[in-house]
Computed example of a mutant assay.
Amino acid sequence: MADYPRAPRLLFLLRQLDNLTATLGKSVAWLTLLMVLATCIVVILRRGFDIGSIALQESVTYMHAAVFLLGTAYALQYGAHVRVDILYRRFTPRTRAWINSLGALLLLLPVSIFIGFISIEFVSSAWRIREGSTDSGGLSMVYWLKTLIPLMAVNLSLQAVAEILRNTLVLMNMTDAANEAADSEAAQ
């Protein structure tokens, strides 16, 4: 392994970005349990007691949106995203690092930044009017729900930077450092 003076700083930044993504991903994962419980309560109230709650039903939708939007970076970090790997799995780690870096740099980052940019006015107008549910008895926090979109873009952009850093370490023949960062995160 070659000695690169910037590698410890890259590794530190990579760990920080990975920790941020993992903390958010693990936190939002608990919403899946709450979604199941809320859905069960909705069904029991509706079928057993003929009581409906629009707010409780909408809360399931809010949690579902949070899991997907705030969990995207976590899925990327752990390779749980969709990948067509017909050829990819046959490539060397170095070739994979190039593909992953270029994909993050040329596709993921621009798309994330674009989504963040175009969502600003959408979210701002929702906050200006304190947008609420269109259903009577629904949650009056649609503006909070819409805020998840730019948050997803920021979180996914940060994880894209982490992926670029991880692959840069591989390309610098510092695979031990890149693996160490990934392993330390997986242990948490």
Score class of each variant (00 low, 15 high):
E180Q: 13
A182P: 02
P150K: 06
F122Y: 07
S133A: 06
G116R: 08
T175K: 13
L107M: 07
I149P: 03
G103I: 15
I99T: 11
A182K: 11
W144F: 14
L165Y: 00
A160F: 10
A182C: 06
T134P: 11
I113Y: 13
E121M: 11
R128P: 05
Y143A: 06
P93A: 02
A160M: 11
A186Y: 05
S136Y: 13
A177P: 03
A160L: 10
I99Y: 07
T95R: 14
I164F: 00
S136H: 10
I118L: 12
G138S: 08
N155A: 11
Y143N: 15
S140W: 05
F122V: 05
V123A: 12
S157I: 05
P93Q: 00
E185F: 06
L151K: 08
W127T: 09
G137I: 09
N100R: 12
V142P: 06
I129A: 06
L108E: 02
R96Y: 01
S101Q: 11
A178N: 01
K146I: 02
E131G: 13
A126L: 10
R128T: 11
S124Q: 07
I99R: 07
T175R: 15
I149G: 09
W127P: 07
S125Q: 15
L139Q: 11
L109D: 06
I164E: 01
S136L: 13
R130T: 14
I120M: 10
S136M: 12
V170E: 01
G116F: 08
A97K: 02
M141N: 09
M174D: 04
S101N: 13
A162M: 03
L169R: 04
P93H: 01
V170T: 03
I113N: 01
A97Y: 00
L145P: 06
F114D: 00
T134H: 10
A178I: 01
N167V: 03
A97V: 06
R166D: 02
W144Q: 12
S133D: 11
V161A: 04
G132W: 02
L156V: 15
M141E: 08
L105F: 10
T168C: 01
I129M: 07
N179E: 09
T147D: 04
A182Y: 13
R94E: 12
L108Q: 02
L106H: 13
G132P: 07
L108G: 12
G132D: 04
L106A: 10
F117I: 10
G137T: 08
V111I: 15
F122N: 07
N155I: 02
T134W: 00
S157T: 11
V170F: 00
